[in-house]
Write a protein that binds this DNA or RNA. Structure first.
Length: 875
RNA sequence: GCCGGGGUGGCGGAAUCGGUAGACGCAGCGGAUUCAAAAUCCGCCGCCGCAAGGUGUAAGGGUUCGAGUCCCUUUCCCGGCACCA
């Protein structure tokens, strides 16, 4: 075998072997347990980044591990190919998004192949291809039929200069990213999917997802946000210009704190609320304020942190229980799209209302009291807003606790016909319309006479033209008569095609099911889907913990209700991997703003202890600002190119570094020195392969005697250590903690290098131990282990070798060492026979030299023995 | 602001059930090899202390024979917040 480790030749040869043997092609086989391992498919942004490498390495380790354990594995790969970055690239480079996307796919596929992932490429798909998105459209039409898809108005960010809708990402400090114009909120019609119809099931089924991280389930539960409250109305006599009662004379609000209803001192409505509109007609100041409310972003985080402002409408409604007049305000923090677009204001027990009342000098009436606490309107205190305590200043409700008070208030409102308890979800229906070109066309036709009609099934797919070049001023489909012009499916007259496309979350909500049934052009999925699905292991970034995963769960349930699939949840087990970070260096200048420096363009400055305190640019020697670690990104120039790493160190080194450096769920900080260390380890593995070939193999006896031989101490230790590490590695693989599996492999090699190899028995022990090491390591670094396994005569193909299990005989010990503590402080160790009982251990411990020294002659009051671990003497 | 997660040597991290804190690796230091360097190998390596020992897991408090791990308070960092994917 080769003297030196040549990563590039080793990897090329192993990849060639897998290609020739079609090693990763998955075929349905009812006789074996299946294992469907899926990593979130990439957006084809141009190049693979290290986050992808990490994600897919984790998936590959699990795939190969399960394959060796005898599972029928499937690991597919595809492309989340629609999306905004392709349009941005088109604006910048004047290249159609389709071409940019397909070029990127070709390049990134090559990168994935060079990393040696065990992917079944025959199942590859791209969501921008009509044979895939046809089924988005088909299912959308089924949802329309079932009333799950419907049309209503939505609030969007509007750029008044470019006359276009902006994504939240394109709004920077309240202004359009290209034009710098102040962004407005605008209401336009769009299609929604009624995910709230599934809220109860989406919440309840979280309990069945035992192998999802607890935090993801918690986040989803909070996102769905089931709460019971009371929806009720403030009656009024306000009439519009035509003399009609506005909203039938009722101002509806929803509250989870009906127990505080006697503390209402105002109401606040959204800027778009009919009462606001009505009042603004005769009040120019209010009209201006409403206009102002309509500028700014629609993001919830912005809404929550902005200064709460309001203006009087001069209108009054009647408190439903007291009959008092309550003033109506317009508040910039009330959203028309939430509930009824109006809230009751109880400044005494709601922090936001409290601040609002103090700002505008509104009355504050305490209606909840807690024993031992004194209420003061000077400053907000935590306990004002809790559900503990009981009603006060509330007439007949005085003395009631939260639950009873809510029941009583709801009953009284119900008797008046002005309200009742209502189950409330935080979850909102999913708006899927996007006023953008590079997405799946929504299959709707607009006819002047017949209205908006679904495209008939036999005309699917509605194919998106692939040669448009967006310029930032709106959807280029508007300028494409060949796309726009069609005939009405009902009356046959000329009609116009819908130009909105679907949210790309639609594309990613069911791709995993399509992987199971590739090539079917007559159905969305077929019977094969119920063999492979649900996905046994899903792996992806924690940033998808809510939206993508929730939408996929919803889509699955809809497909289930349509009889397309037999399962209710798509992902049996979930691993959310942490992000990959690197150092950030920047320099701020007045002229050019922030300039970012790549890590290889600077020299680090360390303090005496070795901590990084700053850096200087190599270019000019001048200092740059060190910004700590941040996610790798193109704009901040701190990305690391996987290609360069693969070329220099090989795929195995990259994979090993990724697995070794941090546990999968944590963020991973890139380190050039760290990758050197991983490379060093693989070189040592190779070097030991040489030792094995030259010094160990020749000594191996014709018939192996290891199973029956009595081993000398050094060999018994090596063997015990190896099997102990194997046991730990298997345990850690079960926990999906791969960094300690990698570390176990390093420890095995450390032990092997030190072991004697001068006898036939030693050769046998080493043969066994190195065989274990190669197999445990093989899912992480498949190429080098493939080469050594074959080269050293272990077998033809390590991928088809059985996964090793620790042997009890190898682990057995005569004598064990226990930690000795006196009063909980470690004072030494005590050796006891492995078979010693509690009394014997206590006697040995008390008699030990260290114990006598630290007990200072006092008698033992109590002795705690933790079997196999420690003995603690309390005096 | 709301929801979720996290903080352990100079650095990444380990510690399975509350039981030896710092495994494994990186960096650093010392040595071997070398004409020299690279590569490789050996040794040292939390802090204070000559040592015995003391002390130490963001900060403060609590429970326990024993706390990185459990409870309370504070603080800082990260992810998500519905049109980035």
């Amino acid at each position: 075998m080769q003297e030196k480790y040549d990563h590039s030749a080793t990897e090329k040869s192993a990849q060639g072997h897998w290609e020739r043997t079609a090693a990763f092609q998955a075929v349905e086989d009812a006789s074996r347990p299946k294992y469907y391992c899926l990593s979130m498919f990439p957006y084809p942004s141009g190049k693979l980044h290290m986050g992808h490498v990490r994600n897919y390495t984790i998936g590959d380790v699990l795939t190969r591990f399960h394959k060796m354990r005898g599972f029928n594995v499937m690991q597919p790969m595809g492309w989340d190919a629609f999306g905004l970055p392709a349009e941005n690239a088109a604006i910048a480079n004047k290249v159609p998004p389709a071409q940019w996307t397909y070029d990127n796919i070709a390049y990134m596929k090559g990168q994935l192949k060079s990393l040696g992932f065990a992917i079944d490429w025959s199942r590859e798909l791209a969501t921008c291809k009509p044979d895939y998105y046809k089924w988005n459209q088909w299912l959308f039409l089924r949802m329309l039929e079932k009333g799950i898809a419907y049309k209503k108005t939505q609030v969007v960010n509007w750029d008044p200069v470019d006359q276009t809708v902006l994504a939240n990402e394109q709004v920077i400090d309240g202004r359009g990213w290209r034009t710098g114009a102040v962004v407005e909120k605008r209401e336009i019609p769009g299609y929604y999917l009624a995910i709230t119809q599934y809220a109860e099931e989406l919440l309840g089924d979280l309990d069945t997802l035992e192998n999802w991280p607890e935090r993801v389930r918690l986040m989803q539960a909070n996102w769905i946000g089931k709460s019971t409250g009371v929806r009720f109305a403030f009656p009024h006599q306000i009439r519009d210009a035509a003399g009609e009662l506005i909203d039938d004379g009722k101002l509806w609000v929803f509250t989870t704190r009906a127990d505080t209803i006697m503390g209402v001192t105002f109401c606040a409505v959204a800027a778009e609320h009919p009462l606001a509109t009505h009042a603004a007609r005769s009040n120019p100041g209010l009209a201006a304020f409403i206009d102002k409310c309509k500028s700014g972003s629609v993001m919830e985080a912005d809404m929550a942190t902005m200064e709460k402002e309001g203006l009087r409408t001069g209108l009054y409604v009647t408190h439903p229980l007291t009959g008092e007049q309550v003033e109506v305000w317009v508040g910039n923090y009330v959203l028309m799209s939430y509930g009824d677009g109006a809230v009751m204001g109880v400044p005494s027990h709601d922090e936001r209302d409290f601040a609002f009342a103090r700002k505008y000098d509104l009355p504050i009436v305490q209606v909840i009291e807690t024993e031992g606490r004194t209420y003061s309107t000077d400053a907000w205190q935590e306990w004002y807003g809790t559900k503990e305590g009981h009603c006060t200043n509330s007439g007949k409700y005085d003395g009631l606790g939260y639950a009873h008070a809510v029941d009583a208030v709801a009953a009284d409102l119900n008797a008046l016909g002005l309200g009742d308890k209502k189950l409330q979800w935080r979850l909102r229906d999913w708006g899927i319309s996007r006023q953008r070109y590079w997405g799946c066309p929504i299959p709707i036709i607009h006819c002047e006479a017949c209205g908006s009609l679904p495209v008939p099934d036999d005309q699917l797919p509605v194919v998106l033209p692939e040669d448009c070049v967006p310029d930032g001023s709106g959807n280029p489909l508007h300028k494409r008569p060949d796309f726009l012009e069609c005939s009405c499916p009902q009356c046959g007259k000329p009609a116009r095609r819908e130009t909105d496309t679907m949210d790309t979350f639609v594309d990613s909500s069911w791709y995993y099911a399509r992987f199971a049934t590739p090539g079917n052009d007559t159905a969305m999925v077929d019977a094969r889907v119920n063999y492979w699905m649900p996905v046994d292991q899903y792996i992806g970034g924690i940033e998808h913990a809510i939206l993508h995963l929730l939408y996929s769960r919803f889509w699955t349930k809809v497909m289930g209700d349509l009889g397309l699939v037999s399962y209710r949840e798509p992902f049996r087990r979930l691993l959310t991997q942490g992000m990959v970070l690197n150092h950030l260096f920047s320099r701020r200048s007045d002229k050019t703003g922030i300039e970012w420096f790549a890590p290889d363009e600077v020299d680090l400055i360390h303090d005496a202890s070795g901590r990084v305190t700053g850096a200087t640019a190599r270019r000019d020697g001048e200092p740059v600002d060190y910004g700590g670690f941040g996610t790798m990104s193109k704009s901040k120039r701190n990305g690391v190119d996987p290609n360069a790493m693969i070329e220099q160190y090989g795929a195995d080194t990259c994979r090993f570094f990724m697995m070794f450096t941090a546990p999968p769920e944590q963020t991973l900080e890139w380190s050039d020195a760290g990758i050197e260390g991983s490379y060093r380890f693989l070189k040592r593995i190779w070097a030991f392969g040489n030792v094995f070939a030259h010094e160990v193999r020749p000594r191996l006896p014709a018939t192996r005697e290891l199973a029956s031989a009595k081993l000398p101490e050094t060999l018994a230790t090596l063997r015990r250590e190896t099997h102990l590490l194997l046991k730990q590695a298997n345990y850690d693989l079960g926990k999906q903690q791969f960094n300690t599996v990698a570390s176990a492999c390093m420890k095995m090699l450390n032990a092997l290098e030190k072991a004697p190899r001068d006898t036939a028995l030693a050769a046998e022990v080493i043969e066994e131990a190195f065989g274990i090491l190669l197999r445990v390591l093989s899912p992480i670094t498949p190429h080098i282990t493939h080469a050594l396994w074959a080269e050293l005569g272990y077998g033809e193909d390590i991928l088809r070798a059985a996964w090793p299990e620790p042997l009890e005989a190898a682990l057995a010990q005569d004598e064990i060492e226990l930690v000795l503590q006196v009063l909980g402080k470690t004072r030494g160790a005590v050796k006891v026979p492995a078979s010693a009982d509690r009394a014997a251990i206590e006697a040995l411990a008390v008699a030990s030299e260290a114990a006598r020294r630290f007990m200072e002659g006092k008698p033992a009051k109590k002795i705690i023995v933790v079997p196999g671990r420690l003995v603690n003497i309390v005096v």
